[in-house]
Write a protein that binds this DNA or RNA. Structure first.
Length: 468
RNA sequence: GUCCCCAUCGUCUAGUGGUUAGGACACCGCCCUUUCACGGCGGUAACCGGGGUUCGAGUCCCCGUGGGGACGCCA
């Protein structure tokens, strides 16, 4: 069975880069009816935090990347790691080293000065007199020969063992380190595919050597390229949104973000929008691009718009709920939210924007948009609005058609074009210069509210005209 | 510095020896229009450089150059 995993270290939020490798791993598992595991790599006791664990899980949930096992915490598996390390020690595949950090740094300094790659010099490799107290345990990496990674996206990568050094498996306090725990876990969890960022390519040959030393079956490796910020540098906090949840706050639909992330560095013919099912069905590791790609918010926004335009109104309403709540907009007193969504979905780039665009259906406004009022409330306005108001009062069946016919009637009676009547009416009823077509807008605002606002606008415009 | 990875429009990409180098985002123009949008139509814009291989290279090889990554008792 196919088994993949996503193994973040809990030192921060779930980032865009992490979200994408999680997505790829998840897709691969789902596509092959396999298992997707969430593993928390929390062996750096200093830096990891409970909040980060929660943030990562929140992010995974929001994105809908469900896992079949986990979260598994490496800190719960220390006994197992210790046993493996002991086994390596017993078999002479690992050794104790008591070199001090100062010593190590001096060696590296020297190597750098000699224009060499800094690495451990193997001083303790053949010693047998190192005391347990205060010493680390190192892996005896092979000294010669090549390690070949048969990478599913990059192709074969060859690294000579001379480039590698004896990595530390356990700190003096016995806490195991990353490369050891990853290998033990991937071995124990029978990982078939390791899909991760290509910043890990350098770790892979070391891990392969460890797998080999443990007599374990090698998983397949797939290193996906990094995501860069628009300055060409690796994506980081400086490039705007930190965690994935920031995108929720900014009004993105999780599926849209997933869609964007999928297409960033992967493609299928000329398709841009993929449903969840299509993603699972069509994703191929071999189609993942080999080069790093730049994150582009404008395209993400475009993808988001596509989802806002096409998702079922009910589903959109669910996603919108958080934003309504966040913007303190109570929609219990007003038109059905799905109707409002239908009227506004072509006009919003984000859910955040959508939420703020629809306030006037549910709440009265106290002020007109300054520019809109200035531009559209003229000396003739009170008369026009009063004419509309009188006719609207007579309408019993409040619907788009009846509203439209009133507007037409006013235009004819006053011998004015739609361009003279529509804009002031819009400002009067919505307080803004933008809304869907007037028949739809007034219908949603409702008769009672519309009349009240028209009365207020007549008064406002009259007073304003009287001033000058 | 050493090792590894990479290189097609500004950005995401298609392209696997013969194409007018295609699509998408963005940008610009036109149309639609009571506003804001949507939409429709059209346009600008790319094979990093140099050597090979070949009848023929964006595509294969080599060398540069440029970018990214790694070089931790971080993961």
């Amino acid at each position: 069975m196919t088994v993949t995993r996503f193994p973040p270290s809990p030192t921060g939020d779930l980032h865009i880069g992490g979200a994408r490798t999680a997505l790829y791993s998840w897709l691969y598992a789902r596509q092959n009816d396999g298992k997707f595991i969430l593993r928390i790599e929390d062996t750096d006791l200093e830096r990891n935090s409970k909040q980060s664990v929660d943030a990562i899980i929140d992010g995974m949930n929001w994105l809908g990347l469900d896992y079949d096992e986990g979260p598994i915490f490496q800190t719960d598996r220390f006994d197992r790691y210790k046993a493996v390390i002991q086994q390596l020690l017993d078999e002479g595949k690992a050794y104790r080293c008591d070199c001090t950090t100062e010593e190590l740094e001096a060696v590296r300094e020297q190597q750098r000065a000699n224009k060499e790659k800094p690495k451990y010099n193997g001083k303790c490799r053949e010693r047998h007199d190192v005391s347990v107290e205060g010493s680390v345990i190192r892996f005896k990496n092979p000294l010669e020969g090549d390690v070949v990674i048969h990478d599913r996206v990059k192709g074969d990568i060859v690294i000579n063992n001379r480039e590698l050094d004896d990595l530390i498996l356990a700190r003096p306090n016995g806490v195991p380190t990353y490369n050891l725990t990853v290998v033990v876990d991937d071995m124990d969890m029978q990982m078939t595919h390791v899909i991760r960022g290509d910043d890990h390519i350098n770790n892979t040959p070391r891990q392969i050597n460890l797998f080999l030393a443990l007599g374990a079956k090698l998983p397949e490796f797939a290193h996906v390229p990094m995501i860069l910020g628009d300055d060409g540098k690796r994506l980081s906090k400086r490039h705007g949104a930190v965690g994935v949840m920031q995108y929720r706050d900014d009004g993105f639909i999780p599926q849209a973000l997933l869609n964007y992330l999928l297409r960033l560095g992967w493609s299928h013919e000329e398709q841009e929008i993929f449903s969840r099912e299509e993603m699972i069905d069509l994703f191929k590791l071999e189609n993942v691009n080999v080069a790093a790609s730049t994150f582009n918010t404008k395209k993400l926004i475009w993808v988001n718009e596509q989802y806002i335009k096409t998702l079922a109104a009910e589903e959109l309403a669910e996603h919108l709920e958080w934003h309504l709540d966040n913007q303190k907009l109570d929609i219990s007193n007003g038109p059905a939210i799905t109707d409002v969504i239908e009227a506004h979905r072509d006009r919003a780039k984000t859910l955040k924007e959508l939420a703020s665009n629809i306030r006037y259906y549910y709440e009265d406004f106290s002020e007109y948009d300054e520019k809109a009022a200035k531009k559209n409330f003229k000396t003739a306005t009170p008369g026009i609005l009063q004419n509309l108001l009188d006719k609207f009062k007579q309408v019993n069946d409040w619907n788009p058609e009846s509203i439209e016919s009133v507007i037409q009637a006013t235009c004819e009676e006053l011998e004015l074009g739609m361009g003279k009547v529509g804009p002031p009416l819009r400002v009067a009823v919505t307080g803004t210069a933008m809304s869907p077509s007037l028949d739809v807008t007034l219908n949603l605002v409702g008769k009672e509210r519309s009349l009240k606002r028209l009365e207020k606008a007549v008064a406002f415009a009259t007073a304003k005209y009287a001033e000058s």
